[in-house]
Amino acid sequence: MNNRGYFGELWFGAKSLLIGLNVTIKELFRPIVTVQYPREECEITPNYRGHVELVFNTETGGCDCIVCGMCAKACPSDCLVVKGEKKEGEKRKSLTLFSLDFTKCSLCGSCVETCPKGALDYSQDYNIAGFTREEFHYDLIERLERRHQQPLAAAAGGN
């Protein structure tokens, strides 16, 4: 395959090995590029697509979900359950349950894209770990309430 000969090969080989050593010794003194994860954290891009989350509407103090069920229908793995009920004297259904089974979710974003009201968005949460499967069955209404530390006004009203 090559015709370097006995000594040519020795010379070529020794040179290539020394060049290799030169590369690694230079790298040895260059700054490290990794982060010590739980101690430091990388800045995460705002476009990161975590699991879905209900969007808080600051005007109404609630969420915009109209319980149309489009998201649940679009989901490839049936991980969303949306339930609502029509209360007396109201035109539309109001949201009573919005649960996400994150163990099945493949983060495709179909639900976010199909939502006619833009009531869903991706969360930025990537530090997700747990000991049981049940920890990944999220109640998104409860999460939204916890995030804003107040019961949802619109969850009851749905206007």
Binding site: T45, Y48, R49, L107, G109
Partner: peptide
Amino acid sequence: DILEDVTGSRLTYCYFRVGGVCK
């Protein structure tokens, strides 16, 4: 990092849509 910024994920992308891309 570049791809994550536009597709939202790092490995198992679901970025293209029939008729274009999603972002």
